[in-house]
């Protein structure tokens, strides 16, 4: 598939379905398109275009598949332990804590964060707003169901973050699934939000958006970082993926680095 054909798909998705992928990182976006073509056994570019125009259900499916929904609990334990030691003590001084988890996918990192808040005694006065563009992922996230085969790995990551309890106290195992405990699930509000077009909807003391900006080009990264800045309370915190930088954004000087190795920043004023 040529780059021009990818551009045509982007144009078509915008025109027919209102999703604008024009500022996604081209190399990874193209990989996503090729992946969906292979998974759905689409013979060629024209068949893809035809299906995207004429088959509404397929187009919806295509958009869900094109966004990356790979996630895990306590990914990068050093990020979560830095959050515990350097951010949560400050959040504890607020009577009520509002957190935005942007690009939450199927919710694994949201529940990881909820566990940290619980262990810091902050969960009861915290409200986590978790958003994603992908409604199918959000539906899954709401249910709080994780594959029981992944529990062992998540337990190890949890221990590496310095977790205080037995990880099994946070879920109920049932057949092939582990279901996140109700008190954790109830602390989260899931809703759809598209970082490409949607604006600020509240003011937060902490925004987490990890491994989402990597799929955007610098133009869109800049827009989203401005949105986060405007959605943060003064001196609010922002946690990104450990390989994501704010260096290329026009507002980089409005943030202080709290921990530059795990990419935790703080709004200056």
């Amino acid at each position: 598939m040529t780059n021009e054909e990818v551009d045509e798909i982007i144009l078509l998705l915008h025109r027919e379905h209102g999703y604008d992928f024009s500022n996604y990182s081209p190399a990874s976006f193209k990989r996503r398109v090729l992946r969906v073509i292979a998974l759905n056994r689409i013979a060629n570019f024209y068949d893809l275009k035809f299906a995207l125009v004429n088959d509404k259900k397929f187009a919806g499916h295509f958009v869900q598949e094109i966004t990356v929904n790979v996630t895990e609990m306590f990914r990068d334990p050093q990020f979560f332990s830095a959050l515990s030691s350097r951010v949560l003590p400050t959040l504890a001084s607020y009577p009520s804590i509002k957190i935005w988890h942007a690009g939450c996918s199927t919710g694994e990192e949201v529940y990881s964060l909820a566990i940290l808040l619980h262990e810091a005694g902050l969960l009861k006065r915290s409200r986590i707003y978790a958003t994603d563009i992908n409604t199918a992922a959000l539906e899954k996230a709401k249910k709080g169901i994780i594959d029981v085969r992944l529990v062992k790995e998540y337990t190890q990551s949890y221990i590496k973050t310095g977790g205080k309890n037995d990880f099994s106290s946070y879920y109920t195992a049932r057949y092939d699934n582990a279901i996140i405990k109700k008190e954790l699930r109830e602390s989260v509000v899931f809703s759809q939000h598209n970082l490409v077009v949607d604006g600020a909807f509240n003011e937060f003391q902490l925004i987490c958006c990890r491994n989402v900006l990597i799929y955007f080009n610098r133009v869109l990264q800049n827009r989203v970082l401005n949105l986060f800045y405007n959605s943060l309370a003064p001196l609010g915190f922002m946690g990104l993926g450990i390989k994501e930088a704010i260096l290329f954004a026009d507002i980089k000087n409005k943030f202080d680095a709290v921990d530059n190795t795990v990419k935790i920043f703080r709004r200056k004023d």
């Binding site: 780059n3 990182s25 081209p26 190399a27 990874s28 990989r31 996503r32 992946r35 990356v68 790979v70 990914r75 491994n211 990597i214 799929y215 080009n217 993926g241 450990i242 390989k243 994501e244």
Partner: peptide, 21 residues
């Protein structure tokens, strides 16, 4: 290449990371 990411180079010769499957 950092652990646990795919490493790509974009047409403008910048690195792009990818956390897909």
């Amino acid at each position: 290449a950092p652990a646990n990411y795919h490493l790509l180079v974009e047409a403008d010769k910048c690195f792009s990371l990818d956390y897909s499957e």
